[in-house]
Nucleic acid binder design. Structure first.
Lengths: 239, 239
DNA sequence: GATTGACCAAATGTATACATCAATGCAATG
DNA sequence: CATTGCATTGATGTATACATTTGGTCAATC
């Protein structure tokens, strides 16, 4: 098996099913049914469901039990906006309080690595995604706030809210490179603002950077079902 | 008993103990010990611990099990700042998108009720607290964002981050009335900004309003242990 | 026809025995 | 004396039987 405990395996399996849209939003998940399905007892199923609720993928029902959380388009845009607000706050605080130079150096390196990835003939998306994640992780840590970092982690757990959520969009291959180049320039500007203690600028730039994801959502939803269904991050979204 | 299930009672008991500082921050909570203590089996204890982790009062340990989340002063100020940011965002969105008139009316009523409470000879703090909560609840709902309302609920679950957290501070009875009067004028200004679709103003005012709580924290911590230990919202805070 | 109440089925709540894992200490051994 | 390795302890992980609650159906009654 991939991991040690039944709970962990159930968690991974169920999470995968949920984010891939295998369960309809609002659908209730029953312990017994899942236990039979996964060939384990109810106990690890409950444990997994509980953790998924903690991740925000399930809702607890008033009478007990769990249901798949329902996301509509408004929820998606709100969550991305929320990520922007939180990352923007992180950037602002980092600028105000002065960030750990080591973290800034790491962020700077991530930007350089992304430059390198984008300068090649073909773009290695997994590498881009990796360094993009590193940059955003630096942002979360740069303000030195455990609280803020924690909430950012929470929010970006949702499949469509991750900074790397829409990077696999192949329906616009030509535009993608442009977007990534622009995005990395935003990274540079954000880092520059933080390093120069320009807090308002850092916050505004970071919010704007998050809004790029909103454009992706907008594009995917305006171009109807075919595209949207092919987009993994939006598979969980209902209407 | 107060409630139906053992889980719920355990949840309430443990939550109370945690926020009152009965357990040291970082202290691990063992299922067996708690089960014996509460005279129930491990199963409802686990369920309660899991929910407390969801509330952010416990941390899950990598190796399994739970520990009481440790809050220092920085965490407190960051969380209050975070609440300000989220409420500010709610106010901004409400102003931008136009809030439900019914909610605005309810918020307006809450402000009037607070006026009435403050105009009497003695201030009924439980009433103030009630209408203050109603106002802030309206704020969370006014933007029509389930996502944002949910996160606000999460954040304000922490004892020191609630909008009504420091209202029981009796060490400054004379200053308290002044503060509450100012706070309600802020309420009025926020509502006015939202109603007039002044989004930037609404956001700024709301952030500033939250910072009032920061002043309370500052006061309580500058005046040393005696006061701080008498302050329920800060009982959970370590250093 | 609407309302009430009894019943039943299905789901969660609970207790508990047992399995497993991790840390610890101690003893045998090099 | 250091090191290995086994036994012990104490913790979470798991299965499962049973209790309780809930939601719905259906029929009796007004």
């Amino acid at each position: 098996m991939t991991t040690k405990t039944h709970t962990e395996r159930a968690l991974i399996t169920l999470r995968q099913r949920i984010v891939s849209g295998a369960y309809a939003g609002g659908q209730r998940l029953f312990e017994v049914a899942l236990a039979e399905d996964l060939n384990i007892s109810r106990t690890p199923v409950r444990a997994a469901l509980s953790k998924l609720a903690e991740e925000g993928l399930l809702d607890r029902m008033k009478s007990g039990g769990f249901a798949v959380r329902k996301f509509d388009l408004r929820d998606v845009t709100d969550t991305i906006e929320l990520r922007g607000v939180l990352e923007g706050t992180a950037a602002r605080l980092a600028a105000e309080m002065g960030a750990d130079p080591e973290i800034l150096a790491q962020a700077d390196d991530a930007i350089s690595q992304i430059d390198k990835v984008l300068s090649g003939k073909t773009v290695d998306m997994s590498k881009y995604s990796k360094y993009n994640s590193i940059f955003h992780d630096c942002l979360a840590r740069a303000c030195g706030s455990r609280v803020l970092a924690r909430e950012l982690t929470r929010v970006t757990t949702l499949p469509f809210a991750s900074p790397s959520a829409f990077l696999d969009d192949e329906s616009r291959a030509t535009q993608l490179l442009r977007n990534l180049i622009v995005a990395n320039e935003q990274h540079r500007a954000i880092l520059n603002a933080i390093a120069n203690r320009q807090s308002a600028r850092a916050e505004a730039l970071t919010r704007e950077h998050a809004r790029a994801a909103l454009q992706n959502v907008e594009f995917l939803t305006k171009n109807e079902a075919a595209l949207r269904e092919g987009s993994a991050p939006l598979a969980i979204v209902s209407a």
